[in-house]
């Protein structure tokens, strides 16, 4: 406890950095992953507008980036990170690999949420003269809303655990503290505190996501 009080500033800063990295990366990952996931769905052979070549290419990109382990991706794309952020270490630098790893993951989450929408409802919308765009916005996304919120809770927690790995390359945050003190200096207490804080942050974010999902679901 004494060590926690002594280092409270460091832990607060670490928690802040972790939240900043996680939430900003999640936001950007959704900006890329949401349209990507929708495109995966509508260009599918059973989709609203099947476009085989585009679907094959998008699937390939998503699969490739999904199969690279995060730590390796982190190191591999260092030149890209440097080109975008200007440096290859620090909190902002960590956001680049986080987004690149998370966007394809988010796309898959979006895809699987939208797939749950009953095809009969889509058919009904078509029978009323809905355009593809109206079907996407007013039927697919709005009917899948609860599932999309659950997906975002999963995305946030996954990105948070990636962000802890970014500590290895000086990305900041709680993962960085755990790595520096626990791994390099054998300070078990600080490491344990970092881990506990990480668990708390993950749980809180997850519960918020699940609560929103449950609140938004009108099916029961």
């Amino acid at each position: 406890m004494a060590e926690f009080i002594e280092n409270i500033d460091m832990f607060l800063k670490g928690t802040g950095e972790t939240l900043y990295m996680t939430l900003l990366s999640t936001l950007i990952a959704y900006l890329i992953g949401l349209p990507l996931g929708i495109l995966l769905i509508i260009t599918d052979k059973n989709g609203l507008k099947p476009i085989k070549w585009l679907n094959v290419i998008l699937n390939a990109i998503v699969n490739i980036f999904r199969s690279i382990p995060f730590l390796i991706l982190l190191v591999w794309i260092t030149p890209v990170t440097r080109a975008i952020v200007g440096k290859s270490y620090g909190t902002n630098a960590a956001i680049v690999p986080l987004v690149i790893a998370a966007a394809p993951f988010v796309a898959r989450l979006i895809e699987s949420s939208i797939k749950e929408v009953d095809s009969g409802v889509i058919e009904a919308a078509k029978s009323m003269g809905a355009t593809h765009w109206q079907i996407v916005t007013k039927v697919l996304l709005s009917e899948a809303k609860p599932s999309l919120f659950i997906g975002s809770a999963i995305a946030v927690t996954t990105i948070l655990s990636y962000s802890a790995m970014a500590g290895f390359v000086g990305g900041g945050g709680l993962g960085d503290i755990a790595t520096r003190f626990g791994y390099y200096r054998y300070n078990d207490t600080i490491m344990t505190i970092s881990v506990i804080l990480l668990v708390i942050v993950v749980q809180v974010l997850q519960e918020i996501g699940m609560l929103i999902a449950k609140k938004s679901d009108k099916r029961n």
Partner: peptide
């Protein structure tokens, strides 16, 4: 199967 929008 009625096909109503369940979230509306």
């Amino acid at each position: 199967q009625f096909n109503l929008l369940m979230q509306r």
